[in-house]
Amino acid sequence: MRARGATVKARPTAPLPVASLVIGKPVEEAAELLPRLFNLCRTAQDIAARMAFGLPLTETPKEDLTREILRDHLLKFCVTWPGFFGGRPQPIPQISGSDTAVVRAALFGPLGSLPEEPGDFAMFLASGSPITQVLHEIRTDFGPGEACAADLTAATRQNVFGAAALENSVAARQAHRPVMRHIEEEFGRGPLWRATARLYDAQDCLTGRLQDVAIVAPGRAVVPAARGLYAISAEIEDGHVKNFRRITPTDHLLAPGGVLDQSLANLPREKADLAGLVLDILDPCMPVSLMEVDDA
């Protein structure tokens, strides 16, 4: 039986000492090593590393990155999130070249696109498709202000290398949309806001509107990824990595007082059993354990 007054705290695992693993290595070897160290966002890591190290990219870097991000979004909506509500996993639509009709139909229904106005979005949620059912369940589980974070500064190419807690997420790059602003006003920056952002981000992947990769300064590269902005800064000397720093969306998510801390602090005690869903929606790219603390 759950303890009365129990709150949920997060305990991340110790991060891998990535810098010490790549410093001193030839740039080609270091660029090949990074995606092997982590199972997630391998394409984003490869592109960012090669850009920061001054190495050539594949012929289709943006297309490769878009497919990776879209696959991640589809996995959440079709497989991972339905399981939290007792639903069956849905087949992940096949992503095949420029033919996006199957993916669009699976995500957006007969219209093939998402509504841009809040009133139309409400009707979209009522359509009863497996995808909209996931959003409906999330909206039902979390009331206004629950599992929400404050309006933190959004991560940009200019500030992503800073140490402060930022809103470095898919929601940050979709926050300008009228539907996203409406959800934020009604529910706050919580699970529904973040889950809906993934759907709009998937649409941007399908329409070629995903944010571009960029070199922001010599040795500094910023790449959109499935969780937010991924960044690498490096100093190269005689073809070897002299200095290295890697910034992921999870670094900002787990920062003291950041989105994860705030979201769990704003999760009602009687809904502590939903902490796993909150964590999955926030989606850190490293293991994070949750523990209940009896503060009665």
Results as ranks from 00 to 15, higher is better:
residue 13 T to V: 15
residue 187 F to D: 11
residue 238 D to N: 14
residue 179 V to S: 13
residue 286 M to D: 05
residue 134 V to H: 05
residue 190 G to R: 02
residue 179 V to C: 07
residue 32 E to D: 12
residue 12 P to R: 13
residue 233 S to I: 00
residue 239 G to Y: 02
residue 293 V to W: 01
residue 224 P to D: 01
residue 91 P to V: 08
residue 82 P to T: 08
residue 95 I to K: 02
residue 222 V to G: 02
residue 60 T to F: 13
residue 249 P to Q: 05
residue 196 T to E: 11
residue 143 G to S: 08
residue 114 L to K: 08
residue 94 Q to G: 06
residue 83 G to M: 15
residue 34 L to V: 11
residue 267 L to K: 02
residue 233 S to K: 06
residue 231 A to G: 13
residue 242 K to H: 13
residue 236 I to G: 08
residue 38 F to Q: 10
residue 173 R to K: 07
residue 14 A to N: 07
residue 290 L to V: 11
residue 89 P to W: 01
residue 93 P to D: 02
residue 145 G to R: 03
residue 230 Y to L: 14
residue 226 A to F: 00
residue 267 L to I: 06
residue 105 A to E: 15
residue 159 N to G: 01
residue 140 T to E: 12
residue 163 A to P: 10
residue 74 L to K: 01
residue 276 G to E: 08
residue 137 E to Y: 04
residue 91 P to R: 05
residue 56 P to S: 05
residue 276 G to S: 09
residue 48 A to N: 12
residue 290 L to A: 13
residue 274 L to G: 03
residue 192 L to T: 07
residue 160 V to S: 00
residue 268 P to L: 03
residue 262 Q to M: 05
residue 1 M to E: 14
residue 46 D to K: 14
residue 249 P to A: 11
residue 124 F to L: 09
residue 148 C to K: 02
residue 51 M to A: 11
residue 124 F to K: 03
residue 91 P to M: 11
residue 100 T to L: 07
residue 85 F to V: 02
residue 280 D to T: 14
residue 38 F to D: 13
residue 159 N to M: 01
residue 145 G to M: 03
residue 68 E to C: 14
residue 127 S to H: 14
residue 109 G to E: 04
residue 133 Q to C: 11
residue 21 L to P: 09
residue 4 R to V: 13
residue 221 A to K: 00
residue 214 A to S: 11
residue 94 Q to A: 11
residue 201 D to K: 08
residue 129 S to T: 14
residue 234 A to H: 06
residue 216 V to A: 11
residue 97 G to C: 07
residue 84 F to Y: 15
residue 81 W to E: 09
residue 172 A to Q: 09
residue 27 V to R: 10
residue 212 D to V: 05
residue 130 P to C: 03
residue 278 V to H: 00
residue 130 P to I: 03
residue 115 P to K: 04
residue 84 F to K: 05
residue 5 G to F: 07
residue 277 L to G: 06
residue 124 F to H: 07
residue 134 V to C: 04
residue 42 R to H: 05
residue 156 T to E: 00
residue 113 S to L: 05
residue 237 E to Y: 09
residue 137 E to T: 03
residue 245 R to A: 15
